[in-house]
């Protein structure tokens, strides 16, 4: 615990952002294609164990159909557990579990264990990315470029998540096309 605290203290803000994204990827079943929105939903469920879908909708303002899809994904990937309510089929209670809980706990350590702060961090990332459904991989590419103050494409790809090279290439190229990454070659 002390060693981790010291490590956090010696890490720059931009390095911390990279590490936090890595923890969030772990929380999402090592699936960096997960959207930041899905990550926000998972963090909300972790903050309110036993919450229902209605509660999440009220807090995050996410449309029901989109939320239902995300909850299905989180359940299928073992990120959350569902507790059926025999007296009310609509009031299924949700809670995080397993590696999701651990990944979120590791990320929360950078926010004084404040779920609100972690959710604010994710929400800010969604806002600044200015693209449709930014993923954790997209966020990591930007975070790497911020931390390194400039890098080659290969240097960025080397620090991603060992996914298919074509997927990572496409993600990088999409960010370039969207203007979120710029070519600074002289």
């Amino acid at each position: 615990m002390i060693r981790n605290s010291a490590k956090r203290a010696m890490t720059t803000t931009d390095q911390k952002i990279c590490i936090i994204i890595d923890h969030l990827v772990e929380a999402l079943g090592n699936e960096p294609s997960s959207s930041l929105r899905r990550t926000l939903i998972l963090a909300d469920i972790d903050q309110y164990p036993g919450t229902t879908q209605t509660g999440i909708m009220e807090r995050l303002g996410i449309h029901k159909s989109a939320l239902t899809r995300e909850i299905e994904w989180l359940f299928n990937y073992g990120c959350i557990m569902r507790q059926e309510n025999p007296s009310d089929a609509r009031a299924v209670k949700l809670q995080t579990c397993g590696y999701s809980k651990k990944g979120l706990d590791d990320a929360l350590a950078y926010f004084d264990s404040s779920h609100d702060a972690l959710k604010r961090f994710i929400e800010k990332f969604i806002r600044v990315m200015k693209m449709e459904k930014p993923t954790l991989r997209d966020a990591k590419i930007i975070a790497i470029l911020e931390e390194t103050k400039g890098a080659t494409k290969q240097q960025v790809l080397d620090r991603l998540y060992e996914g298919a090279a074509s997927t990572e290439n496409r993600a990088f190229n999409d960010l370039l096309k969207e203007g979120l990454v710029k070519d600074v070659r002289e």
Binding site: V128, I142, G150, A151, T152, V156, G179, K182
Partner: peptide, 9 residues
């Protein structure tokens, strides 16, 4: 070389 064009402030 590539750089971020996103303001992470």
């Amino acid at each position: 070389m590539f750089a971020s064009n996103v303001d992470l402030t």
